[in-house]
């Protein structure tokens, strides 16, 4: 073959990936691998999170601050998209393994459904996460108990942490201003539904 190539570089090549028109089925297939590889980065974040929590409070706060930073949030967003795509398309693959969805039209329908589910699940997850953090107080940036308590004054006395256990002021004095979660002083979320 190398002999032929040296004789005539213009001779036709056998078809390879780039000469095919992109199709939904082939694109979703390669995307399944790409998201699978991307999810490995997600496992690193899980490991960091768990090991940091085991080491102690400072390490845990470092991991949490990164997760809450713009870069960390972007990475977690990408992670969630990859996770929901790989989950949805993985179920599509399991249907193939059972012998279903082999007709071209069904493979396409399931492919569009996978994309729909990816968007839907990502949307629901981030909506749930943000509706919980509504009115969140950026307490972790407070430098002293006093400034933390001052910030708490803008919230009602009945406002509790996200578990509905402690008030903002209690969190300020018990845990120290810098260890407060950024959602510490929100109202009890409606979705928890177990209070009153």
């Amino acid at each position: 073959m190398s002999q032929g190539a040296s004789e005539n570089k213009e001779r036709p090549l056998s078809p390879h990936l780039l000469v095919y028109k992109p199709q939904l089925t082939s694109m979703l297939s390669i995307l399944h691998r790409a998201t699978g590889v991307a999810l490995i980065v997600g496992t690193l974040m899980v490991a960091w999170w768990l090991v940091a929590a085991a080491i102690g409070e400072d390490a845990y706060n470092g991991a949490r601050d990164f997760a809450n930073s713009p870069l960390g949030t972007l990475m977690i967003f990408g992670w969630s998209v990859a996770l929901f795509y790989h989950l949805s398309n993985g179920i599509r693959h399991l249907f193939w393994d059972l012998g279903y969805l082999f007709k071209i039209e069904n493979a396409y329908k399931a492919g569009y459904f996978v994309l729909f589910m990816t968007v839907l699940l990502t949307g629901i997850t981030w909506f749930a996460a943000f509706s919980q953090a509504e009115d969140a107080v950026p307490v972790s940036t407070q430098e002293s108990v006093e400034s933390c308590e001052k910030l708490c004054a803008s919230y009602s006395d009945t406002a509790k942490d996200f578990r509905g256990e402690r008030t903002c002021v209690e969190l300020c004095t018990e845990e120290g201003p810098c260890s407060l979660p950024h959602v510490a002083c929100t109202e009890v979320p409606e979705m928890k539904g177990d209070k009153e």
Binding site: A67, N68, T125, A128, A129, Q132, S179, P181, H182, A184
Partner: peptide, 17 residues
């Protein structure tokens, strides 16, 4: 896992452990 991350996001070290 997704449910858990959403519900414990932003938790303090004490709350997470």
């Amino acid at each position: 896992f997704v449910f858990s991350v959403v519900s414990i996001r932003g938790a303090s070290h004490a709350e997470f452990t």
